[in-house]
Computed example of a mutant assay.
Amino acid sequence: MQTTGQVTCNWQGDCFLATFEAMASPCEVLLALPESQKPLAIQLAEQMAAEVWRIEAAYSRYRSDNLFSELHSHPGQKQRVDAETARLLNFAEQAWHLSGGLFDLTSGLLRKVWVFDGSDRLPKQKAIDALLPLIGWQKLDWQTDAQDTTGQIKGGWLTLPQGMELDFGGIGKEYAADRALGIALQTLPQSDIGVLVNLGGDLACNAPRAPGVPWRVGVESLAVEKSASLVLQVSRGGLATSGDSRRYLLKDGKRYSHLLNPITGWPVEDAPRSVSVAAPSCVQAGLVASLALLQGAGARSFLTDTGLKHWVLD
């Protein structure tokens, strides 16, 4: 075992394993590299962890010295947004439209009254009602730049009304997993060298562990902490799980999920306990998993209609 800064490195069978903490989650990177390529493996792991930490630092709502804080320090004013943030906001806008307003980056304000700590403390309706006027993507003024000749956008302009907030938590980990994988693929001598990024259960990979040998990953059990209900095999693309195994409230025998309907301000009802989705990227998988739970009792039919591989636990 070797520790380089905040990254701990080791070999797991025929693969290099690096672990670190980010976004309030245990994270790991697996590289299908032999021990003879230890310097390359360590270099890649450190670069990938640094990219995850960069994204966390930029968009964390718990810091006062970052891009997120800057966006919120000028309410009511038109602000220039960089290309990366513009892509994330465009993605969030598309998700808002696709979900009929149920996936909303402005709904994080509801955390002020909802604390999902396993207790039976429900907020008063009056407290919820006070926040609802400050929630709704349609209340933002978001204008993206036109695409350049390469099809890329260079940024955009955002006006955030007084009292409103953005919360990138619903897409941050999944985006970081895809970005970390991209960092590895820029450096690896061969694109078919297997890489798996796991950020607290949100995964991205480019190739199997070895030819014909997929990666084996576990989906957290709903009943027993640190155990798996499902063991899935993945070879490429993204895998994300959304559920309430850890964040919920329980009152009078009724369980309240942490997934909130931004229109009513109350938890979505009759949704499965856990949904896992495989998609071409982790950010796509995470979005579909969240959208499915937001459908409540219609989660299964929604997932079937997507045509994506999925697994549901109750």
Rank of each mutant, 00 (worst) to 15 (best):
T4R: 10
G5C: 10
G13C: 12
D14K: 13
F16C: 11
F20A: 06
E21K: 07
A22W: 00
A22Q: 00
A24F: 05
V29F: 11
V29E: 04
V29S: 01
L30Q: 12
L31W: 10
P34S: 14
E35W: 13
S36G: 06
A45M: 15
A45G: 14
E46G: 09
Q47M: 08
M48V: 10
I55Y: 00
R61Y: 05
L67Q: 02
L67K: 04
F68E: 00
K78R: 13
Q79D: 02
V81W: 02
A83S: 10
A86F: 13
F91E: 06
A92D: 07
A95W: 09
W96P: 01
H97K: 11
H97D: 14
L102G: 02
D104E: 12
D104V: 13
T106Y: 11
D120N: 11
P123I: 14
Q125S: 11
L132F: 06
I135Q: 01
I135W: 01
W137N: 05
Q138H: 12
K139C: 08
T149E: 15
T150I: 13
I153D: 00
K154M: 06
K154R: 12
K154F: 04
G155K: 08
W157L: 09
L166F: 04
G169Y: 09
G170S: 15
I171E: 12
G172P: 03
A176Y: 00
S191N: 10
V197H: 05
G201W: 03
D202L: 02
A204Y: 07
C205H: 08
R209V: 13
A210G: 11
A210W: 07
P214C: 14
V217T: 11
E220F: 08
S227N: 10
A228N: 09
S229F: 01
L232N: 08
Q233S: 13
V234Y: 15
S235H: 07
R236G: 01
G237V: 03
L239V: 13
G243S: 10
D244H: 03
L249I: 12
L249Q: 05
L250P: 02
K251N: 14
K251D: 10
D252R: 04
S257D: 01
N261T: 02
P262W: 03
P262C: 02
G265D: 00
W266E: 05
V268W: 00
E269V: 03
E269L: 04
D270C: 06
S276K: 06
S276V: 03
V277A: 15
A278I: 09
A279F: 13
P280V: 04
V283L: 08
S290E: 06
L294S: 04
Q295A: 03
A297S: 10
F302M: 07
D305N: 14
D305R: 13
D305P: 05
